[in-house]
C-alpha cells in the first residue's frame, strides 16, 4: 500500500512544495493542505498516514518561532492531531515545522504524554540567521522509522532559531530512549562539541533532531528536502568534476532522500 502524505501550509509556512516533491520522488502520494482547511475538515487526518509540517516562517517567528502556529493548532486542532500521532502514523517537522512540533509537544512525548512542552528550539547563539551546509550523524540506536539505515548526512540548515534547549533531566530521559536522533558533527565525524559553525546554533549537546518515544514523530532543524539530489549540494561542482575525471556518472541522489524513502518503506510492508 502506498501511504498518503498531508503537508501543511499557510501563515508563512513556505517549504510545502519542495517537501511534497521530496515525498513524491520517494514514491508517495501527497497533498498540500492549508491549516484553515484542515481545521474546517479535521477528518482528513484520518485519511492520511503521514503528516508533514514543513519549513517556513509561520507568523514571521513572532512570539518565538513556531509558537503562534502551534498555539493555533493546539486551540483549534489538538484532538485530531493527538489521535493522529497515537495511531500507527508518521509525523515529521522540518525547521519551522520542527519548532511547531516542539511547541505543540509532539516531541518529546515522554511516556506518550503528547502535548507537553519540554523542549525549546530558540535563538541561535550567533543571534544571526544561518544558512549553511552541515554534517550530521544519525543515532544508530534510534528506533525512528524515518532514520533506518542512516549514518551520516550532509544537508543544509537555514534558521535563526535552531538551538535546542531543555532541562538536564529531560535530556537524560531523551537519551535513555535514544530520542536524540540526529546530532551535528564535524566533517571528520567527531562531535561538533558546540563549536560554530559545525554546530550552527549552539544547540545543547549538538542536538539537530529529536523524536518522540516511538520514533514515529521526528522533529529536525536541518532540511533533508534541500539535500535530496547531488546537484543541490554545496560541493556539487567539486563532486561533478571529480566524477568526470574518473570517467564515472555522478549519482543523482544525495543524503536527504533517506528520510522520505524510509517513510515510503514503512508503509510498504
Amino acid at each position: 500500500m502506498s501511504a498518503n502524505v498531508l503537508i501543511l501550509s499557510g501563515y508563512g509556512l513556505n517549504c510545502e512544495e519542495e517537501t511534497l516533491h521530496a515525498f513524491e520522488y520517494a514514491g508517495l502520494k501527497g497533498r498540500i493542505r492549508h491549516i484553515n482547511d484542515l481545521i474546517e475538515n479535521p477528518k482528513e487526518l484520518e485519511e492520511v498516514q503521514i503528516l508533514a509540517v514543513p519549513g517556513g516562517f509561520s507568523y514571521g517567528d513572532d512570539t518565538g518561532s513556531g509558537n503562534a502556529f502551534a498555539q493555533k493548532m493546539k486551540l483549534a486542532l489538538w484532538e485530531p492531531v493527538r489521535r493522529f500521532v497515537e495511531r500507527d502514523t508518521l509525523t515529521i517537522g522540518i525547521c519551522n515545522g520542527c519548532q511547531i512540533v516542539a511547541n505543540l509537544g509532539l516531541i518529546p512525548g515522554i511516556d506518550k504524554k503528547y502535548g507537553e512542552r519540554l523542549v525549546a528550539v530558540t535563538y541561535n547563539m550567533t543571534a544571526r540567521y544561518q544558512c549553511r551546509w552541515i554534517d550530521l550523524s544519525v543515532n544508530e540506536n534510534s528506533r525512528s522509522p524515518w532514520l533506518s539505515g542512516g549514518r551520516k548526512m550532509h544537508i543544509p540548515v537555514a534558521h535563526g532559531e535552531g538551538r535546542f534547549m531543555m532541562d538536564e533531566s529531560t535530556l537524560v530521559a531523551l537519551r535513555k530512549c535514544n530520542q536524540v536522533a540526529i546530532s551535528y558533527i564535524r566533517p571528520d565525524g567527531s562531535a561538533a562539541g558546540g563549536e560554530f559553525p559545525f554546530n550552527p546554533n549552539g544547540s545543547q549537546a549538538d542536538i539537530a533532531g529529536v523524536t518522540d518515544e516511538s520514533g514515529r514523530v521526528l522533529a529536525l532543524m536541518p532540511h533533508p528536502e534541500r539535500g535530496m539530489f547531488t546537484w543541490q549540494r554545496d560541493d556539487y561542482h567539486e563532486l561533478k568534476d571529480r566524477a568526470a575525471r574518473e570517467g564515472r556518472e555522478l549519482p543523482e541522489e544525495s543524503d536527504g532522500i533517506l528520510v522520505f524513502r524510509n517513510a515510503a518503506r514503512y508503509f510498504e510492508g
Partner: peptide
C-alpha cells in the same frame, strides 16, 4: 560571507551554484 549566510539561498530547494563557492 556574513550576508550570504544570513540570506536563505536554499529555500525552494533549487540552489545549484551558490553565493559561496569552493572549499
Amino acid at each position: 560571507e556574513f550576508i550570504a549566510t544570513q540570506y536563505d539561498h536554499e529555500v525552494q530547494a533549487g540552489s545549484v551554484l551558490k553565493p559561496l563557492q569552493g572549499p
